[in-house]
């Protein structure tokens, strides 16, 4: 009887060991399955229905990159893959070359920042002819066959800058230098100038003489930007009072130059975009103010425009993005 009891307890212990070991084995298998499955190269394998191309004139521009990342994330939700064309290539290509590549690669849609050249217009037209919808952002190429433009209204922008300058309280004369991208079309410049001057004259008593000049900066190379900004800050031949920057790179460069060459206070700069560095400049009083363009709005707008066109065949030709002053 006692022996039977011992046998029974032995059996129970044995069965327990077997069960526990089996559980551990199963646990190990599950652990392996999940641990290793998630470390695999293709674990985040999302399949996209479409591919869109995003072409930037200047892939260093923080604003443009913000727009791209917002647009990419939004596109993914819509089942589309948005590629910053040229990003993964070893060689650097001009936006024209990238555009040509995008057309040859048969993207389902192209988001491009035009540079006001006839070649770009042709490329846009070629894409459209090959049934690839094109959305322009930042600057427009209204002469092309592009489906839609999404960006700030330069008239509104001129208006906003005018308000900032007005607050500076110049009494007799004010020399203003507007630093634009080389690619900015003349039409945009004209709009900007008209609204800026309109705002300044309506705000001032009429005694102040505003002298506005434009200077195009080659933003394709950060070295060029640095050079141009240095010239302005260091050898201020024209005795400039206010500098209006029209892009993120120039603004950042200007902020650094003001500090480096000790021109804080003697040269008033109004920046563009609200990157962390620029906001810091505004906070410290190095930059007078900055305009904030909503990168989210622009990024989402680009994708929505393409989707809408592909879905319905129609889309608004012009979508405006709001602009705000931060000072």
């Amino acid at each position: 009887m006692e022996q039977k009891g011992i046998r029974k307890s032995k059996l129970i212990v044995g069965v327990c060991i077997v069960v526990v070991s089996l559980l551990i084995l199963a646990g190990t298998a599950l652990f392996l399955y999940f641990k290793l499955a998630h470390s695999g190269a293709d674990s985040t394998n999302v399949i996209y229905d479409k591919k869109y191309a995003f072409i930037a004139n200047d892939s260093d521009d923080a604003f443009v990159l913000d727009v791209y990342s917002v647009a990419k994330e939004y596109a993914a939700k819509k089942g589309a893959y948005l590629e910053l064309v040229g990003e993964n290539l070893n060689n650097s290509y001009s936006s024209h070359e990238l555009m040509a590549m995008a057309i040859a690669s048969k993207y389902d849609g192209i988001i491009v920042e035009p540079d006001d050249t006839a070649e770009m217009t042709n490329l846009i037209n070629k894409a459209v002819q090959e049934k690839i919808p094109v959305v322009t952002y930042m600057t427009d190429d209204s002469s092309s066959l592009r489906q839609c433009y999404i960006g700030m209204n330069f008239y509104v922008l001129g208006n906003q800058y005018g308000k900032v300058i007005g607050k500076m309280g110049y009494e007799d004369e004010c020399r203003i230098l507007v630093l634009t991208k080389e690619t900015l079309p003349d039409s945009s410049k004209n709009n900007f100038y008209t609204s800026l001057m309109g705002e300044l004259s309506s705000n001032s008593s009429g005694n102040v003489k505003y002298d506005v000049s434009f200077s195009a900066v080659d933003t394709a190379s950060s070295f060029n930007v640095e050079e141009a900004v240095r010239d302005i800050v260091l050898y201020d031949d024209a005795d400039i009072d206010v500098v209006l920057c029209m892009d993120e790179i120039t603004t950042t460069s200007m902020y650094r130059a003001l500090v480096d060459y000790n021109r804080v206070g003697s040269l008033e700069v109004v920046g563009y975009y609200n990157s962390d560095t620029i906001l810091q400049g505004v906070e410290r009083g190095v930059l007078e103010a900055t305009v904030s363009v909503d990168a989210n709005e622009m990024g989402v707008g680009c994708i929505d425009a393409l989707e809408e066109y592909l879905d319905s065949g129609y889309v608004s030709e012009y979508i405006s993005v709001s602009v705000e002053i931060i000072d």
Partner: peptide, 22 residues
Amino acid sequence: TTIQGNVAPAARDDIKNMIYAY
């Protein structure tokens, strides 16, 4: 040329189309 993966998902599709154009 399925557009997938986390390494240049569209690259193979791009290349294929470019070769056809070529």
